[in-house]
Nucleic acid binder design. Structure first.
Lengths: 341, 341
DNA sequence: CCACGGACTCAAAGCGCTTTGGGTTGCTGT
DNA sequence: ACAGCAACCCAAAGCGCTTTGAGTCCGTGG
């Protein structure tokens, strides 16, 4: 059933039927009701391919996921973000086009999306320092929104959390408990968020006349095994830490395993603070928060990013939108005073 | 730059240019080379909206994710599957349309997708018993592939793992170690995979003259906290288990936390076997597998499902394809003989 | 020398919508 | 009674591709 047939059964022109369906004013209310009823009865739905061609809008937003063999490993985070964004897209009538590309083809993928007009805008996640995607998307003149930020953070729209402040606070919290040998188990070093978190960590230490210990810092994709291995190595090495700062709950889970393996007790022998993205299947709140954590819902971020992007698509000529979210520190059971030696 | 303009600059007709670009035989090699060069120079890419309208194919595959407030919680699993499938889609030139729908609107979403022709086929994940989606998709005549299966498993295409066999083997393994009070912490009861796993568990017990203990069974969304809470309750209750069987690594992580909280040692005081989907950020193999586990890569399943679905789309009239994957049991450090009392 | 088939190429007809640029009606005010 | 104006409705022109059906040209066999 297409528009032509529907119009024929109604003895109306395609124009009128189209207008009735799309809520244009120049059609009598009575006619509109009749059209809507007929459309419903016939299970008519406008062909989206034709509609897109005619309107020139794709009504689709692209997410490009590079398959680096490492970065997609943070997929629980990527997934929660995606779900948040997807909720909003659905509500606003946008489709979500997910494109997996092997690393290095990211450029090509964006160029392709822009050239063949299959999306109206794209979401950029996890920017690295001076991420080339930003310059490229500006050049392609494709609306985009960055979750995170990089470089001078000017001239484009983004939403980010206050990573420096969050990690500074978390570090201060540990310092106040008397810890001085604090380990930082962070995300991959080239990601902007990891750099900011490192900075917050360092700032806090420096302010107390301490400096970060190189053997107590690690950077890598935020998997459980990375957390486990780094913690194990640090705990077994010389000058072991009494506290850990982790960039993700997943890392913290690995740390917890290493701690338990050694017969140590979390919150008593070893303290851990992590950043908690509030992943739905890793709820940190059951029976009181397990981990002391800086927290910020990645899903809520996804929702807000989607809103901002859609707004940008609807009115591309507005100045860049930028939003910085503050982060809570929730005290859980994984931290305690530095044990006396 | 569109086809018309490109044709004009080449002094050729649109037909010829289109044919040259799409590899049809009726164009001279010399001409084809000339066209390809010009297209490249002009950064020409055919408008996908127009192409889709003209060909009648969407070159898009749909994944519909119901937002039940619970089911999407298994999103780490969903995400790995998605990435696997997405790799194949990309390689085969298909787009991936991700549609989040609030629960109860799943029907509407599928009908919509079918009616407006925005996808050529859909992937169905995590079927429940007699899942209504299957009947609906048959009715809509939309090619689909089910990851998992349900009902009589006839008349449609699916790929599944041998859940019954896997869980029977895992249970036998624990029984052989002398465990008799074995707890099962499973996924939501209405999912087919959970039912099969329960059956494998029960079968193994029954074969040895035992029967499952109601207070040692739990069903729910497979989150860390669910694992933690159920294990905690069972361990603190009367007749505590000496071993756990968990439907997911994520659950097992929760169990491990409960075990550690009580000062017990995994593999010595308490044994745990879980099903491991080989999630990339929860690698179970670092330093020898942490958990004894039945394992099967969900990402590989995603890849294979995508292949099957694309094949089905290309030739919709073939008989249903069905594939059953066997599952390995890897022995790790989380199991040991039942401690004497 | 002519008919014929293969090798190329083209104009034009869709694909199913939206949107432009008019027409008709039927009232109103003068 | 007539211009003027809403209020409706329509035919037709795109949107940018693919594909059909129809040439044109050239070399070959009869």
């Amino acid at each position: 059933m297409n528009l032509k047939e529907l119009a024929a059964t109604l003895n109306l022109s395609q124009t009128t039927v189209s207008r009735a369906l799309n809520g244009y004013p120049e059609v009598r209310e009575e006619t509109r009701v009749r059209v809507l009823a007929a459309a419903k009865a016939a299970h008519y739905a406008p062909n989206s391919r034709a509609r897109r061609l005619a309107t020139g809008r794709a009504m689709t937003i692209g997410h490009v996921i590079p398959l680096t063999g490492r970065a997609e490993m943070v997929n629980p985070i990527f997934a929660d973000f995606l779900i948040g964004a997807g909720e909003v897209y659905a509500a606003e009538g946008y489709d979500l086009l997910l494109s997996m590309v092997t690393d290095g083809d990211t450029d090509k993928a964006f160029r392709q999306l822009a050239a063949n007009g299959s999306v109206d805008g794209v979401m950029v996640q996890a920017p690295q320092d001076n991420d080339p995607r930003i310059a490229l998307l500006k050049e392609l003149d494709l609306p985009f929104l960055v979750h995170g930020r990089t470089g001078d953070a000017k001239g484009y729209s983004w939403l980010d959390i206050a990573n420096i402040r969050a990690f500074r606070r978390a570090t201060d919290f540990l310092l106040d408990l008397g810890h001085t040998r604090i380990a930082l188990i962070n995300g991959q070093a080239n990601f902007d968020f990891a750099q900011r978190r490192l900075r917050g960590f360092t700032d806090a230490l420096t302010a107390r006349g301490l400096s970060p210990l190189p053997h107590l810092m690690a950077h890598d994709a935020m998997t459980e095994s990375f957390g486990y291995l780094s913690a194990a190595e640090m705990l077994d090495g010389p000058d072991p830490p009494t506290a850990f700062l982790a960039s993700s709950v997943i890392i913290a889970i690995g740390i917890r395993r290493a701690v338990a393996d050694r017969g140590l007790r979390l919150g008593r022998d070893i303290s851990v603070i992590c950043h908690d993205d509030e992943l739905s299947y890793l709820n940190n709140d059951v029976g009181g928060p397990a981990f002391t954590a800086t927290r910020s819902s990645i899903r809520a971020a996804g929702r807000r990013c989607a809103e901002l992007l859609i707004d940008l698509i609807r009115d591309p000529d507005q100045p860049p939108k930028q939003e910085l979210w503050d982060v809570d520190l929730t005290v859980g059971q994984s931290t305690g005073p530095c044990p006396a030696r």
